[in-house]
Design a protein around this nucleic acid. Structure first.
Lengths: 389, 389
DNA sequence: CGGGTTTTGAAGCGCGGAACAACAAAGTCC
DNA sequence: GGACTTTGTTGTTCCGCGCTTCAAAACCCG
């Protein structure tokens, strides 16, 4: 019954606040930290000293000359503290080290000629970590591994319920990678992690309520930020907007039998309309920009259907911003204002008036940043518990 | 810059935990409180004493005989602490006093023959409070007023943006009632407050993620509980599922031009199908239960469309439970298992497997309890701040 | 019916942790 | 170069909770 100090104490909370601040905002002066937290100068000094001892932040000399008064030392996240971020895809495995300072010291994209099993994936990760530790990350401290998986991931235990394109079913990926690497591991849905990244550092920064939708070759995935936190739901399977059935006003707009969003609004149909068989996103966007009438009609059709699906989500969730990634960004960006108006026409006026629809901004780093953030989350929750040094 | 004690201190949090526990769980022994909070006996004694001094809880003699050992006094919410709960409707204004012990010492339904203005509403409320204070509530301490309004309410300032059936537009209801009554006032959307009530005390108790949909004569409203907290969204306009456009698989199922849910799934269509012009909910349910073939087909049609709208919400939010109220409960309850299966067919398998669909359980008290809860929320957040006695 | 056991409340003490105050240090402004 | 401003440093104070000891109030059992 004794709960001496390891309880959720005030100090733990304050250490976490400080570490999260320098992680999210970048280097800050101690004076800025006192202002941001409302804590006393002496308390900040003590807390920062503990974080420095724990090897989580570094202090450096004040920036030269800003205003009168004694200059305040700069506190920054230690770039030597890194998380390993992994994103398995059909044709490649991307793996990177992401620093607590948001730097990416190493990144590698491993092309594969067959679908990786979870075992192969775990071994590849452990192998790369091993090599990096002899080289790029020789001085680094790896706090964990985060995986962004294109599929359903059970929040409770990191079990990959179903990743159809990777052909993974009920795979205990989290435990597998944790065992193989010997590192704490988190596994999350790629779209959810993408939403987290856009929320913290991208197009959705500053919004507490975010709907994020990403369109990829394999379908449409989404993630939700609510109360400023990722929404995982009862099992961890939120944001599956691709399986939704939005209303389709004109019968002639229907292409698929059951009206599922990702069958109607799909990258494959878009590619076919512009006469391409394969293209990366910039190439597709370029083709759409110069497309002929029939392709324009297909883009408009997809915009109409997507707008209804988005309006449904906006009516239900009243987000401050909707962020679109992948080919959804491409078709929306043809005329973003027009697309926004299309969504607003189908939402309650109050929900519509302050709604923003934006294109995702973090590009290829998005999933790596989101995965790393998940790996950092335990450290950011309890800095002292991880670094007892 | 001095933040002596009014800061979000540990004590405030612990006082709030205790008060919330006895409010939500009912009377608890001090021993139960120590177990539930993990705090020390001596700390509990101190905290409870402060709450007793503040007039928020009462301590009474231990219940007779349970097991060996010294009996522990019972701590209960003080029934003399009440909130005024108000629900304006088209044909009546319901107003009640709800105790912190969840009792309802007074309730009155004031029938009206014309639409009330917000001014009339405020005066009626103040008038009833005045009378009650001379009588039923002579010994009570009224901590605030909570209003459940059928319309869009801006969370930031309690402005009623639009309550179409009451014909209220951009009415500063919160400030108006606060000024007229001299009491702290909160205003919320009726469905959101209904969701809160069902979450705390009704069919959704114990679930952290809840989708609540209510079907009334004037349309379909909804509320969301997420992370165990009500979801208000950027402006406060969440849960407007009635304005959604769900996919409608069969063209013959369509009745309305634009496919808006509450035009397709409506109480008026249901009444017409069973051959009634007006009925309360039990009467409608009875009529549906014995309905002929054409009425059954209308019920099935509405069930099909509603199921798609619900499946969309479930795919996005992965709630643990969906709670249906009003006539939506009636049409679902015809065959709840069959309706659940219908929704599950249209959701991702993982989201579906643990999903429960339930009928709302709090009946007529739901909105009053939700409104009172909103009025209590500040007290439950900072007990000492309200009762400095 | 009376002693042993169990569980709890009451009171005093100790400690973690943050605020405060006074002083020193390190800059800018004139 | 001196006045001013801002900040870090140090020692003290105070709040709040845990712990220990002791007494009280029940049950169990012979």
């Amino acid at each position: 019954m004794t709960e001496l100090s390891p309880a959720e104490g005030v100090r733990q909370r304050n250490l976490a606040r400080l570490l999260r601040l320098v992680h999210l905002e970048g280097p800050l002066s101690r004076a800025a930290l006192t202002e941001a937290t409302g804590l006393n100068r002496s308390t900040i000094a003590d807390l920062v000293a503990e974080l420095v001892r724990g090897g989580l932040v570094i202090e450096r000399a004040p920036d030269p000359s800003r205003r009168v008064g004694r200059p305040s030392p700069i506190v920054a996240a230690d770039p030597g503290v890194v998380a390993i971020a992994v994103n398995p895809e059909v044709d490649a495995l991307t793996i990177a080290a992401v620093g607590l300072d948001r730097g990416i010291p190493v990144r590698e994209r491993i092309e594969v000629d067959h679908l990786l099993t979870t075992d192969e994936t775990a071994r590849l990760i452990a192998d790369r970590i091993g090599r990096w530790q002899d080289d790029d990350l020789a001085a680094a401290r790896i706090v964990g591994v985060g995986l962004a998986v294109p599929g359903l991931v059970r929040a409770a235990d990191g079990l990959v319920r179903n990743a159809p394109h990777l052909r993974w079913t009920d795979a205990p990926l989290r435990d597998l990678v944790a065992e193989t690497t010997g590192l704490p591991t988190t596994v999350g849905n790629d779209a959810t992690l993408g939403a987290i990244a856009e929320h913290l550092f991208g197009a959705a920064a500053g919004f507490d309520d975010v709907v994020y939708l990403n369109g990829g070759a394999s379908g449409i995935g989404g993630g939700l930020i609510v109360h400023g936190m990722p929404l995982l739901g009862a099992g961890g399977y939120t944001g599956e907007f691709g399986q939704n059935r939005p209303g389709i006003a004109a019968a002639t707009d229907r292409r698929a039998d059951d009206g599922v969003l990702e069958d109607e609004v799909s990258r494959a149909r878009l590619l076919a309309a512009v006469g391409l068989v394969a293209a990366d996103e910039p190439a597709l966007a370029a083709a759409v920009a110069v497309a002929g009438p029939s392709a324009v009609e297909e883009v408009d059709r997809q915009r109409r259907i997507l707008s209804t699906a988005l309006a449904n989500a906006v009516n239900a969730l009243n987000p401050g911003v909707v962020v679109l990634g992948g080919f959804l960004a491409t078709i929306a960006d043809v005329d973003l204002a027009g697309f926004t108006a299309l969504v607003q026409e189908q939402t309650m006026s109050a929900n519509a008036e302050e709604l923003q629809i934006r294109v995702a901004s973090l590009a290829e780093d998005r999933l790596l940043i989101g995965a790393a953030e998940a790996a950092f989350s335990e450290l950011l929750r309890d800095p002292a518990g991880i670094a007892p040094a």
